[in-house]
């Protein structure tokens, strides 16, 4: 469990993180979402004790990171994959990390195997591609077999196979009861990985809710229809408007109807005698929901909720 309490970070006159209070529970993947510059990396650096909060606290299992005798066995983090000596081999890099926390050397070879770098473990890390560097960073995070994992934009630079692999890894780590906190600026990524979302914009908390709730709460149902006849289409659009469902044209012959159910639109079309080529639910993509959440509008803001932590705490 990661607990952020009124966490605030100010760089000069810039408020990078603004009064963030969030619990990140074990046993699920919590997505940390926000546009570039929202304050995700800063928040993660504060959890890891690298940046000092201007105010507030960030604790893991009730303790600040520097309180752990074996921090790598408690928290594994991939913050910046390039943050290593380019001349040292991947294996030696991990070996030095392992020695600092009393982790046996065989665990180094184990994690190299897990991330698929065994073959190239003796090459200079500086010669690694972005994706290989990312894998090495993940190996470092897994080294201490920690109960809490923090990944800052882990899929950056990975090929599609690598992206799938990271998703699977995050899910299986959470499945083992660990706390998994993954940042991304892409909603589409979170849609596939996260169970729960913490969305921030300009350092401020926008949403802290299960992903399904973000979806349903951010937009009413939307229905897509196609009406091939022009006259019928404008007639139906008029009837929909009267019924309180604004319809926006989607070229060449479609209409997007907001706030209505499929049966309501179907009934209205029947009453108007309009011939339909399509009647389908157009659930807002998470991407769309995200744009609204992080836009200036507070209209679609989902109320922040406290969720009790699951019993099977990591």
């Amino acid at each position: 469990m990661i607990a952020l309490r009124q966490l605030t970070k100010r760089y000069g006159d810039r408020l990078a993180v603004d009064d963030l209070t969030v619990d990140i529970a074990p046993g699920r993947v919590t997505g940390f979402l926000g546009p570039n510059g929202a304050g995700k990396s800063t928040t993660m650096r504060m959890i890891m004790g690298l940046d000092h909060p201007t105010a507030g606290t960030a604790t893991i299992g009730g303790l600040e990171y520097h309180r752990f005798r074996h921090p790598l066995r408690e928290v594994g983090a991939l913050l910046d994959a390039k943050a290593l000596h380019p001349g040292r081999s991947a294996r030696n890099h991990l070996l030095a990390m392992a020695r600092s926390n009393g982790i046996p050397a065989r665990r180094v070879d184990e994690v190299l195997g897990i991330v698929g770098l065994s073959e190239v473990a003796r090459q200079r890390a500086g010669a690694y591609s972005l994706g290989m560097g990312q894998r090495l960073g993940i190996a470092g995070a897994l080294l201490g077999d920690p109960g809490t994992l923090i990944f800052d934009e882990p899929v950056n630079g990975l090929d599609p196979d690598g992206v799938r692999w990271v998703r699977g890894l995050a899910r299986s780590l959470a499945g083992e009861g660990r706390t998994v906190f993954v940042s991304s600026h892409l909603m589409s990524e979170m849609q596939l990985t996260a169970d729960h979302l913490v969305v921030i914009g300009r350092g401020r908390l926008i949403t802290d809710a299960p992903i399904v709730e973000v979806l349903s709460g951010s937009s009413p149902a939307t229905v897509r229809i196609r009406v091939p006849d022009t006259d019928e289409r404008s007639d139906l659009a008029g009837r929909l408007r009267v019924a309180g469902f604004p319809a926006e044209p989607v070229p060449p012959d479609g209409l997007l109807v907001r706030g209505a159910t499929l049966s309501q639109v179907g009934d209205l079309a029947h009453a108007a005698g309009a011939r339909l080529h399509e009647l389908a639910s157009a659930d807002p993509s998470l991407e769309e929901a995200y744009m609204r959440l992080t836009g200036d509008s507070v209209e679609y803001r989902v109320p922040t909720q406290r969720h009790p932590a699951p019993e099977e705490a990591g």
Binding site: R69, H70, R73, E74, H85, R88, S89, N92, L95, A96, M97, R99, S100, N101, G102, I103, G144, D145, P146, G147, T148, E176, G177, R178, G314
Partner: peptide, 27 residues
């Protein structure tokens, strides 16, 4: 499940930090 539950208490601390620095220096 997590490493903190395991009965490994040794290593780390100042001695671990020195061993790590030493490993980094010679590699």
């Amino acid at each position: 499940m997590s490493a903190s539950d395991a009965p490994r208490r040794g290593g780390g601390g100042f001695a671990g930090a020195v061993a790590s620095e030493w490993t980094k220096a010679i590699t």
